[in-house]
Design a protein around this nucleic acid. Structure first.
Lengths: 260, 260
DNA sequence: GGAATAGTGTCTCTAAGACATTATTCT
DNA sequence: AGAATAATGTCTTAGAGACACTATTCC
């Protein structure tokens, strides 16, 4: 983490405030009449469960769209960082503190009429998670359930608000990330076999892959995976080497999707 | 554009409001006490000018950071869509309506203390533009100037707010996009030669490329460029074919950066 | 003719894809 | 032994990179 940078920026900002206060006799403030809006953070949590690519949905317990499926999320509270809000929502839904998964910002959705209650912009985060125990229902959620991605994408009016579009963009981002980054491992437990990693690719992309070529590509791509030294027979047959994620953030060469 | 989708979602939302109003006797509204924040849109406008990869900066005419370099941007006004606000800022700075360039959302920056005036979150947009006449100074900008990207990246305290980080992420996004998308053409005039396209790659990546191999790769990649039928001698020597952007949004095969 | 730039061809090597074969466990 | 899965090897072909060569303009 760029800790020194954060410290120096913070000091810079404090100095700016002090200087302005001295110069003008008042604290700097936003121009009067500046429009303000509520900010929500919504999560696209993806996982591979029982061989199915799934997204976590809740049924809304409050209006608007009461009883409809939606993405888990909530409003950013006073003084809270956006990423911190996403982590908080993630923990509320899964009960786990980023359990070896991956969390990144997906995009911001701010169409003026996307929420009937008023102007709300939503910062969406994408989470890639290993298989997780069935989630607990949150405070404002009547129910929380892992739902097949294909089912969600097939019905444009299944989800509340513009959440269908958010899910679609999150799924496409995830599919694309598997090509150029080692993030498929984020869907796996800390130690995994090459076959388990391959099934992640096959499930997320919806395409069968050649097990022999896949094995060669993964083990020949520098920094993708590292052997732990252990083996397992949990898949039956000959014992398989266990691997953990390697140090690389970018795959060279990439794992390209067939055809497309 | 998914026009029908927009229409159907709009109708859905109106029905939700009407239904809720009938059911409860009041318009749906946000929970009392919900924190609201100001929303700014900032632009990372990139271009290749005189062989230099450059970003448009303004000097701030108002506090905070008065006189400091910053990204062009401004607050989202009442009822305005985020993308519309970005287009408006782009036009205010260049005087042109998305002139063959490219505009996409880059990310949202919402650290609680990033603006000394109060809670402001900034939605950053990335614009890739062809060589543009020197910009006019905007209303709240004392000056606007194309600045070499390398110079901006080298000095972490050159820019106001967290704009250094935003520029860094925008530049990296642009460099990466050249690999997998035909967006290098967004830096070129409507009709361009292969050599001009190559100079874009060389300038943005900061790496010399082999002209012969580059020519073969670009012309062999399906849908990347299409000949217009015209030729030009504006670069001297043998006349060069002119090309325009092709229909593809994803390059197959990709134009990978050397080494990395 | 000479300089400058455009465009094609050739060679080598890496990596992808198709598919055979061997290895090691469990029942 | 037979089933099941893991891991390695072989062959063909596409594409990247290095570099020689030809083509067409202007001076």
């Amino acid at each position: 983490m760029p800790y020194l940078l954060i410290v120096s920026l913070t000091i810079t900002r404090i100095l700016v405030i002090v200087k302005m206060t001295i110069n003008t006799g008042v604290m700097p403030s936003l121009p009067p009449g500046t429009t303000t809006v509520a900010v929500a953070v919504d999560l696209v949590m993806l996982t591979v469960r029982d061989g199915v690519f799934s997204v976590l949905l809740i049924t809304r317990g409050l209006p608007p769209y009461r009883g409809r499926w939606a993405l888990p999320g909530g409003f950013v509270v006073d003084g809270e960082d956006l990423l911190a809000a996403a982590v908080r929502e993630l923990q509320e839904e899964t009960g786990v503190a980023t359990p070896g998964g991956h969390l990144e910002q997906l995009g911001t959705y701010g169409s003026p009429r996307r929420d009937p209650r008023g102007r709300v912009i939503s910062v969406a985060y994408l989470a890639l998670l290993p298989e997780t125990p069935v989630p607990a229902a949150g405070s404002d959620a009547m129910d929380a359930r892992w739902t097949p991605v294909d089912k969600v994408l097939a019905d444009r009016s299944l989800l509340a608000f513009d959440h269908h579009q958010i899910v679609a963009e999150g799924v496409e981002r995830a599919r694309s990330k598997l090509e150029y980054s080692p993030l498929a491992a984020a869907f796996c437990p800390p130690a995994f076999t090459i076959a388990e990693l391959r099934r992640v690719y096959e499930t997320v992309w919806g395409t069968p892959l050649d097990a022999r070529n896949f094995h060669r590509k993964v083990t020949n791509t520098e920094g993708f995976v590292e052997p732990t030294g252990d083996t397992t027979t949990r898949d039956g047959g000959r014992p398989a080497q266990l691997y953990k994620r390697g140090p690389t953030n970018l795959l060279h060469p990439a794992m390209l999707r067939p055809d497309v």
